[in-house]
Structure formats: C-alpha cells, structure tokens
Amino acid sequence: MIKIGKYIEHFINWLTLHFGPFFKSVKHIVEAMVNAVQWVLGIMPWYVLILLLAIFAWRRAGWSAGVFTLLGLGLIYGMGYWPQTMETLALILVSACIALLIGIPFGIWAARNNMVGKILRPILDFMQTMPAFVYLIPAVLFFGLGKVPGVFATIIFAMPPAVRLTTLGIQQVPKDIVEATRSFGATSTQLLLKVELPLAMPTILAGVNQTIMMALSMVVIAAMIAAGGLGEIVLKGITQLKIGVGFEGGIAVVILAIILDRITQSFGKKRMKKTSN
C-alpha cells in the first residue's frame, strides 16, 4: 500500500513546526484586513449602505440590478441576517483580493512563458478539483480556527479562474497586433501594459467575476472551521435539522451572489463594448 496520506501529514506537521512564526504573522495580517473591511462596512447605518450599493448596482448594471439590490438586501436585513452578511462580504472581499493579487500575475507569467504554463496547469487542476473540505484541515493546523483559515482555503479554491482567464486573455490577443507592437520597438513591459493587458481585460474581468463567485461558495463551507458569517447559519440549519433556518441562510447567500455577479460582470461588459465598437 502506498500511503501518500502519511507523507502529506508529515509534511504539514513539519511546516507547522518550522514555520509557526510565519503563519502567526500571516494570521495577524489577514485578520487585521478582514476586520478593517468589516469595520468600513459597519461605519454607516445599514440603510445607507443598502442605498449606496443599490445606486452603485443601478449605475453599473441597470435599473433591474439596482432594484434587486435594494429589495434583496432589505430582505436580508428583515430576516435578521445583516451582521452575518457583512461578515461574509468582508471575507469574500479580502479573499478575492488576495486571490487576484496572486492569481493575475501568475496568469501573466504563464501566458508569456510556456514552461510556467505547463507547470501551473496541473497545480491549478489540483486546486480546483480537490474537494474543498480537504483544504480546511491543513488550514486549521496552520492558522487555528476562525476567519483566517477560512480566507486561506477560499484563496486556494478561488484563485484558479483568475490565473486561467488571465492566461487565456493574453494568449487570445491577436498575433498580428503583438507583432506590430514589437515591430515598433516595444519593450516586453510596454507590450504587456499598453497592448496585452488592455486587450485581455474583458477576459481577465470575467476571471475576476468567477473568482468572486467561487470565493462566495467557499466562504459558506469555511463556516465549518468557525469562519462565521452566513455559512454559520446554513451550518446551523444542517446540524440542527432546522430546514427553515438553513433556507434563510441559503437565500441570503444567493442574494449576495447575484448582486456581486451583476456588478462585477458589468465591468467586463462595458470594456467589451468599448473595444468592439
């Protein structure tokens, strides 16, 4: 019998043993970030925030999205899940931001270097298909219970689309445009910033949208390690067999998902329109 599990266990233990201080400082930083975002979200009364978000959704994605945001968030408040929703939103924003900050540069690197692309591909497959619960265990070992391991697991789960769609977007830039740019004496940085990234932007933004959506689905699972938020309510519904509570939590998640989706998609669409006209 081949006991891969044993080796991985040893490896994880070794990591926790030798990189303890490192994980500790990461934990503090991430915790501070989540708290900061949560603080900002809580700085104004709930109705002001709802109104602001509704106006934002209306400007970006049209009146139906605006109305939906207004009613949806109102419903969440009415159900009494406002604090949990804000907690979840803070987790998503922090995890998605970190995932994008790591994912997009890797995506660029993979697009420009075949070898990197080849190495990254199986790693991304692994990150995407490995059942999400499995990340939770080492996450807890590294960071203890709470929000930080939740963020960690979410980042791993949500990063692949950002990497993949960035790579795809850059590789789809027409060859003749790249060649023309080079023929005018562009450095590779100029090629990237002035041509490849702007032209890849709609695809990259689709990746951003996917990352946020996946972060949302993972944040719920992360409630199992006490990350808090809406996931906690869903989890309560499951563990205590309270069907109603479970659905209420679920509906709140769906509302949040739709709002985030419409807003992030609108960025990609706007750009697509601009380039195709």
Partner: peptide, 18 residues
C-alpha cells in the same frame, strides 16, 4: 532601430482596437 529607422505596415493592419 525599430523605433527610429525601420517601420512596418501589416497585411491585417495590426491596429490597436482600444
């Protein structure tokens, strides 16, 4: 050289659409 001395025109134009 590419910036100052030799410029190129392409069959498919190679213009920046944005």
């Amino acid at each position: 050289i590419r910036r100052k001395e030799i410029s190129m025109v392409f069959q498919q134009f190679g213009l920046l659409p944005h």
